[in-house]
Write a protein that binds this DNA or RNA. Sequence first.
DNA 1: CTATGTAAACAAC
DNA 2: GTTGTTTACATAG
Length: 802
Amino acid sequence: MMRTSPRRPLILKRRKLSLPDGNASNSPARDEPDGESKGAPKQEHSRGDKTRDRVECGSQKFPAGIKIINHPTMPNTQVVIIPPDADIQSIIEALTAKGKECGSNGPNKFILISSGGSSRPTGSAAAQQKLQSKDETSTATKGARAADCQDGEKNIKQSPDKTVERAVLWPPQVNSMGGQEQEGNSSGEATSSGLDNSLTNIQWLGKMSSDGLGPCTVKQEMEKENQTPMQEEIKTEEDSIAAPATSSSLRQDSISERPPYSYMAMIQFAINSTEKKRMTLKDIYTWIEDHFPYFKYVAKPGWKNSIRHNLSLHDMFVRETSANGKISFWTIHPDANRYLTLDQVFKPLDAGSPTSPEYSESQQKRHIPELQKNTGGNSSNKAEPQNARRKMKPLLPRVNSYLVPIQFPVSQPLILHSSLKVPQPMAQGASLSGSEAIRSSKRVRIAPKVLPSTEEPSSFLPTGPVEEKSHCDERPSPFAPTQSVKENNSQPGEAPASFPAALCIKEEKEDSCPDKWQPSFPTVLSIKEEPVQSDEEPSLLLPVPCVKREKHFTVLKSPPRGVSDTVIIKRRKMGRSRRKQHLVLPCSEEPVLVLPESTGSDSFRLTSDLPFLQETQSLELSCSQEEGGPFKTPVKEMFCKLPVSSTPSKVPTATPPMGGPDSWRLAPIAKESSELDFSPVRTSQVPFTSLQENLDLLGFNSTPLKNSLFDSPRQLLQTESNDMVSGPLTSSPASNPESTKQSSPELPASGLPENQSLMEGLVLDTMNNSLSKILLDISFSGLEDDILGQEMSWSQFIPELR
DNA sequence: CTATGTAAACAAC
DNA sequence: GTTGTTTACATAG
């Protein structure tokens, strides 16, 4: 587009540093992005006052059974208890209307929770409904000729791999291609064949929509939502719905329309479609053309330049060269790879239960679609015509929502203790090994970003954060560690038109504990800047060893995969601008690695590294779970990140150490946390908890959210029970015991039922027209009194909760 | 700002 | 010409 840039600056420096890794030391330090969260604007609206009045009003309009109470501490916020059978949609609409009427002075934020408590049968049902078969077609199996890949240079071809197969679901033919991907690519012949395929692909698109996925999700949802009655949700639809009509149109679109995925996402799809998870540039081009005809027929040739640009720019893409050095393959850094495949994106939510275990992640992935449309922003609510656009599911929602544990301070601080949550265990098993755990979380705060207050925690009670931090402090480098997972992604999401804006849910993940590390030290910040090329400066900054160079790890990584032959190349460090920074490391691997430098491996680990490790693990978890997204930001990690290249600006900012462009590595957490914290409460927590745990928590917190994608509010609420409950149970046993011990042991295990401390709810912000999922941490008086003794429980307020 | 997308100038092959 | 890197700029959010 723009053509402008008359002047192209000349590029003064040139690069090429790559290979020699020997030195390696480059990478500097870290950086972290810290996220940014942009703060949510806080708003303080009037401090409340009227809230209470409103209640009544509101209640009137709503269906019976709904209870509305003012939030004890948050201005303009009301808690709406919704009976299980109520029609959420209508309630939301009514609340929205109500909120709007009131404007900024009245209640404009509503925390919706289901009174159903334990009984939420529906949830499950609902969940199920979606599923369905998805694959009939899948069989394509043909491709299987496995094997292939040898290494020679020539074989670039990738072998078919599983992923591919899955992908197959929709585009059968394509798959086949995929499977083969290649063989011929060298010359391009593929194209010819490609054509066909592509066409077919298109078809599949249509098909998808009609078949499995599409329809369900979209349509069903719509229908459901429309219908008021709640119950039927379940079964009816599936088939009936399937509407065919659109298919034809869809196809067409597919060709002409640009896929809702970013280049980064598409590259990941391509790479992950291969067994070895590596692909040559050319194959990437081919894969994209085959799967997204737009690029073959419509896009300007410059799209390839963009692909290359993305490969070079994002750290998550790592170049490896074959042993002989002749071929270069692009791979995805293991820590950042969520193993997304196109089919995952496409599928609606079902995920299969049964499907592959390992890939459970796929399930998780689902994100919610967002509403916004690409172009303009308007969207608010309108409806979008249906499905027109829904062909491809956007990966990540651009929007976010958080899942944040929150507590309502009823009169005082309550404390909640941990709860646990576990979301799903991980996804692909492999990587995550480590942590799977569950964790309790401790945080107390109310937090939704959504809410207005964004303030600084500090202002309120520093304590909270501080405390947490303290833990962190242990580690030498404060900043380093963290990671939260953040996810975000960005994909262009398209949104399905189906939901009215209001309904859309955004998810975000929050990282919960952001604070941990960074808070206190300003030091961190400094890092960032970049030395321009440098090589090592970063290290200076960071005392810690963490810095790593990429090369090292990279190497590592490959091995695991079996590819020993390849060498990784990755480039160097930083730079200033957007350049990729390179990740620093995958902690997980580090251990494995031999780190040369790590002198005392142990020592290093303990100290600074540890955090990293932990983090990583958590990251992984998150990653997998997250999925999605991540595309870009897949995981944020923290690790050491190097100095961030870009944005020097950060420096000044204090706390946040990093922020990197590439987010996946780091986490923005810090920032967020700060935002979140407003709650006066904070407290409690188990002192013991290790960072790790905390981290894990974070991860989990986020994960759960993400996993679930709810298409409708109702689902959201419903899920809560499932997720929460089930999660803990299942996971807990397996996972780490330790975690449990600390925080209240009892909780985890038994816990939920009675005192369930966690509950998911929705936050409807009529000011922003946003609906976000939140996790409420509610404690009932039973268990944990220790803390404050008095805690009130919501149950008092709301018997139904019990 | 950040994330993306584009275009383009180079560097190495 | 292809593959990679890196700038620069634009734009949406």
